[in-house]
């Protein structure tokens, strides 16, 4: 019991801080090593078997493609367009879904009535909306943001609803008996109580949205990572395709590991509400 008190040892920066930095650096090295090994294999195999560049590119040609597209600004433009769409759609989705989900989750009767509806729509989330979105909004920015919004909105609203309705009644009663009124109940109990589910919802919804984005960009626009890949296919530019795939993978890893996972760690796991790896 005394030993575990050290967990709150943020007051001792000295050796602990160095230790933690070393640890996370070592962790990063262990994580990156297999990926570097993969690149090495790629660098050896492609020249060795004289793979046709129209089938699979060499490391050097992908690096050249990267340098070219960075120099002429096209890579940044595609990335920027994709991120803007995902960011905007997700933002609108989360901002509208969370209040709605909480409002619906407050009454158990209402939430159990609405659950099948939201489940149905979260099943459709993302890609299935592409045909109708492009018909309603035409090809371009509006349709894609709508698809992203849809992917995020229903999944997050459903999860928020679920989250609020799984907060034990005793916890709500406890807050009420300690004098919490409507607004305090919302900010102090319902929102933090539903947060684990909200975070899960955002993670899942963003996963659907990211895939939806790539699909929609292949179909319905002339800028963005999906478009970059799909156009390169017309000219058998496999080095651009592989570059795009790597960028897409890295971007998602960054979003997931730097944004979503730490958020989960900082809240849910510390509170002991959910344990996962």
């Amino acid at each position: 019991m005394i030993a575990s008190g050290q967990r709150t040892g943020s007051k001792t920066p000295g050796s602990g801080w160095v230790w933690r930095t070393m640890n996370s650096l070592a962790g990063a090295a262990v994580f990156v090593a297999p990926l570097l090994a993969l690149v090495a294999i790629w660098a050896i195999v492609v020249p060795l078997f004289e793979v046709n560049p129209r089938i699979f590119p060499s490391v050097a040609s992908v690096a050249d493609a990267a340098a070219d597209s960075i120099r002429d600004g096209s890579l940044i433009r595609h990335i920027g367009a994709s991120l803007l769409r995902v960011g905007l759609g997700t933002l609108i989705g989360v901002v509208t879904a969370v209040p709605l989900g909480i409002a619906m989750g407050v009454s158990p009767a209402v939430s159990s009535f609405l659950t099948p509806l939201f489940r149905f729509f979260s099943v459709l989330a993302g890609i299935a909306w592409i045909p109708i979105a492009t018909l309603w909004f035409g090809y371009g920015f509006g349709a894609i943001v709508f698809v992203i919004f849809n992917a995020v909105f229903f999944v997050v609203a459903y999860n928020t609803l679920l989250g609020v309705s799984t907060i034990p009644m005793t916890i709500r009663n406890a807050a009420a008996s300690l004098g919490a009124r409507r607004w305090a109940l919302l900010t102090e109990v319902l929102l933090p109580g539903a947060l684990p589910n909200i975070v899960t919802g955002v993670r899942t919804g963003l996963g659907f949205a990211w895939r939806g984005l790539i699909a929609a960009e292949m179909i319905a626009t002339n800028v963005g990572l999906g478009y970059m890949l799909f156009v390169a296919r017309d000219f058998y530019r496999t080095e651009v395709i592989v570059l795009g795939m790597i960028v897409i993978g890295l971007l998602w890893l960054l979003i997931d590991r730097l944004l979503l996972v730490p958020l989960e760690r900082a809240t849910i796991e510390r509170w002991g509400l959910v344990r996962r790896t």
């Binding site: 034990p168 009663n173 406890a174 300690l178 004098g179 102090e188 509170w271």
Partner: peptide, 20 residues
């Protein structure tokens, strides 16, 4: 009428706020 701070409650399930 309704819950209020004049009556404090201690619950069997503790009902502590896990996020605080």
């Amino acid at each position: 009428k309704g819950p209020g701070p004049d009556r404090g409650v201690v619950f069997q399930s503790f009902a502590l706020f896990p996020w605080k």
